[in-house]
Design a protein around this nucleic acid. Structure first.
Lengths: 132, 132
DNA sequence: TTAAATAAGTGCATATTGCATCTATCTTTA
DNA sequence: TAAAGATAGATGCAATATGCACTTATTTAA
């Protein structure tokens, strides 16, 4: 892998969108415009196309996906993306992380519920007033 | 332009961290330093303290939490945060969103698995080579 | 009196995003 | 046939967000 000279930090793009794109590309190859339509169909719209295309290029730079031009069909050329091994691992990991995230949230919430059982509703300490 | 009254876009801070903080503040009041320790205990460390404090102030600006200074105990003053009604709704909504997110991921993955049943592993179309 | 812990924050460089716009290819329609 | 629209991917710029190091301040421990 060329690893190009993006020397300092090549950061992962926005996690939610990345995860959806990886899932769509699981065992399947597609191009940006197509992916954006599928995401919108699935109710995951709201981003602008620029963000999508930039995210895809960024994912490619970090090795989650790879691309090649498809000029075989009519219309503008399409950049076809496929999942890499890394991308596949990342997707599995993300799903595990999601579960952990939710478990932590729930544990926090449950701890909070327990802590307030003796109906102590007042904020702790003698607190002075707000200031900006 | 100073942008001052932050009229147009006051964006939500990084979603994961926000969600954890909201969960910790559910039915409970705490301050930044304390929250950061709890997050680290729960295995959710890795952010630096600056990010945490800035996230909290940002959450306050968007109305998810509210704060007041606590000077009642020894040591440096503490900014005590509490969940607002908005924050509570946001937290519930986030948990729902997480479920939807995971459901969508799984549906994408399952569709992909079905689509490849006839063992067609080749990328679609006659694709030309990559270019940067 | 010095160091370390607690508590909250700032400054600056870099990264990411939103919004508008651009290029280009092909199809539809007036 | 000219104009408009859909498809496809991308960029420029301003506004935000983030990482990293550093600062300020209060109190306790060495």
């Amino acid at each position: 892998m060329p690893k190009d000279k993006e020397s300092p930090t090549t950061k992962m793009p926005s996690e939610m969108l990345t995860a959806h794109l990886l899932a769509l590309l699981k065992n399947w190859s597609g191009y940006g415009y197509e992916l954006s339509k599928k995401l919108e169909e699935a109710g995951y719209g709201g981003f602008n196309s620029g963000t999508l295309y930039r995210t895809l290029r960024q994912m490619e730079k970090t090795g989650l996906i790879s691309s090649l031009w498809d000029t075989s069909s009519d219309g503008p050329a399409r950049r076809i993306y496929s999942l890499t091994k890394t991308g596949s691992l990342f997707l599995n990991n993300w799903i595990t992380l999601l579960d952990m995230h939710k478990a932590t949230l729930n544990s926090f919430i449950k701890i909070a519920e327990k802590a307030t059982e003796p109906s102590d509703n007042s904020p702790n300490g003698k607190a002075k007033d707000v200031e900006s």
